[in-house]
Design a binder for these strands. Structure first.
Lengths: 351, 351
DNA sequence: ATGAAAGCGCTAACAG
DNA sequence: CTGTTAGCGCTTTCAT
């Protein structure tokens, strides 16, 4: 036996189809056919076995780059996330990744920092990298960029966002229903003067939650005070805090807040505290998303739970369908939220 | 003027180097040289201009796949993350991404779910995808896999983890120093009986924090009670809670806890509460990482802040150096933590 | 059922 | 300084 030389070990790295073909004593073309599930039937079963064995012995792994060059597919999907540090997105990413993996696709994630320009750059870069399709959580409702994409025929699905005209497939939660649950809870607790401190209405999440709030109030025979329906510029703690300050300083009466999301609700906690107001003693607060650790805030947060992981999986599923079966109409997948009651809400204390 | 046909619009998608060359009236080879920063000097400035203009007009974007096939580089790096839902990792990812972007590399992120098998699979899949190098946060200290990698000559850097023998480049925080800060704070507050409820010692973070604790105690003339130095199986809330229960039920006296990380500290909050113990009234708790929102927990958490974003950037930097300048010794980059004092620690109330 | 040959889009010798 | 040529590793006609 000859000793295995270092050279042998290194060579193992670059096992190519030719190597496999040579060892199996066939032409590279044949080896290619044997190795590929789809075309294996075109080749003698015995020969195929020999090729498979050779590939195994050599530790052959096809080079997807070379394959992609020929087939014009990269088995790669671009995932555009507005802010990976918002704890709402990691579960979505995990869902996407899990589903994509199953199908042999690799997600390529980019963080757009909520910046339209960066969004465009990332998008183009990914196109250049030949991604087969996109999943994006960054859609602004006016979506100039989305038009470009769709117009150009690249499969794309929205996750946790949607566009008004429903021309694009999406996987989202029913935001209107979610906020109505919040309003119902508060109304059941006896609250009548409820503020809504929401996110930007250019985002579907911002718009639909606001609409859900107004509809929910009306259903309960409550009149939303226009001065207490505010729209923040971003879904951040700071914006929530700012809006809450404004609401308090406006002098309008309110005993409860529905916040645009958990981050904004946290901002309300801070603003309330700064004004010496107790939560839920003086003001009840409801968040949105049930982000990780919201049960450990002070007080534990009452919020609406969204099945983020499932939303991610579903979005990937939708995209996979587009990829393998071509355009298909634009499915709007809507998952149901749940109310999680914790310590930031209390019955109105009629004085 | 002829109307722009749909066909024109679609063709734009597949602008190739040949198209640019044709429009500029040069050979594709020349066009390639003109387009590439590195080789532009080899071509007449005027010609180069013409090529650039043509590329611009056509909206040309080089196909990195084709380029990679030729150059054996994908300008892609694999990023292995053990648990993207742990809020400690997103900032690291952002740091990596930002630095890599600058250099024209794309990170490909995989979530290994802390599973050695999945780690191996992801790793191989990425190798097959021709990533140029790896950044990994998943290194177990025994690192069989890492040997495989290093042996095979793929550049790799560790982030937020390191191996004992320092054979691999890494960007980490000084965990020993960090924990000593925690011990010093507690000692300054008069605590003498301090428990350490840490993470798995197969991870460098687990091991070094434990060592830092013991060293820190000794420096202050305190004797760590072996029964109160515990090692959890994972860095999770549940493990922190379990360990804390055990510590309480052991009957040993302690008035303070240094936890393996913020998640474990949160678990301590829960366990303490379940036993009717107040934090910090009865027991002070110090976390580790200063993860997002730790200032909003109940009580706000005293913890050690780690510059995660910078750690990510530095790791990317290290890898880039390896990639562009070849092996370089194994640099161990160690960043400094900071103590953040909040509400979960209090002076010992001598009764 | 298999071999031969062309070519995906690009870069890198090598000429000239 | 620029054109020519070859080829990265793979798939896919087209022959045989």
């Amino acid at each position: 036996m000859l000793p295995v030389t270092a050279r042998n070990a290194k060579e193992q790295l670059r096992v190519t189809l030719r190597d496999v073909a040579r060892l199996a004593g066939v032409h590279p073309g044949t080896a290619s056919r044997a190795l590929n599930e789809q075309t294996r039937s075109l080749v003698n079963a015995e020969t195929a076995q020999r090729v498979l064995a050779a590939a195994d012995e050599l530790g052959y792994h096809p080079n997807p780059i070379a394959r992609g060059l020929k087939t014009n597919r990269s088995y790669t999907v671009g995932v555009l996330i507005p802010d990976i540090e918002n704890p709402l997105f990691p579960p979505i990413i995990r869902g996407i990744e899990d589903r994509l993996d199953q199908a042999g696709y690799t997600p390529v994630i980019a963080n757009t920092e909520n910046d339209a320009e960066r969004e465009r750059i990332d998008f183009r870069a990914m196109r250049a990298r030949q991604v087969d399709g996109f999943i994006t959580a960054t859609a602004r409702l006016d979506h100039e960029l989305l038009d470009e994409v769709a117009g150009v025929g690249v499969p794309l699905v929205l996750v946790n966002r949607r566009v008004e005209d429903e021309s694009l497939p999406s996987a989202t939660a029913d935001d209107r229903a979610g906020v109505r649950m919040a309003v119902d809870l508060l109304a059941d607790l006896g609250h009548e003067h409820i503020a809504f401190l929401g996110g930007p209405t250019e985002l579907s999440t911002g718009l639909q939650r606001k609409e859900g709030f107004i509809a929910g109030m009306q259903d309960r025979g409550l009149k939303p005070d226009p001065a207490l329906v505010a729209t923040g510029e971003r879904f951040t703690l700071d914006e929530g805090q700012r809006l809450c300050h404004e609401a308090i300083e406006s002098g309008r009466q309110f005993t409860a807040i529905v916040a645009g999301n958990d981050l904004m609700a946290l901002g309300c906690y801070d603003a309330l505290a700064e004004h010496g107001l107790a939560c839920p003693g003086d003001v009840s607060v409801v968040g949105y998303n049930d982000m990780p650790f919201s049960d450990h805030f002070n007080p534990p947060m009452t919020t609406i739970r969204i099945p983020h992981y499932e939303i991610g999986r579903s979005a990937a599923d939708l995209l996979l369908r587009l990829l393998e079966q071509g355009p298909d109409g634009s499915t709007q997948l809507v998952l149901e939220p749940t109310l999680v009651v914790r310590g930031s809400t209390a019955a109105l204390d009629k004085k």
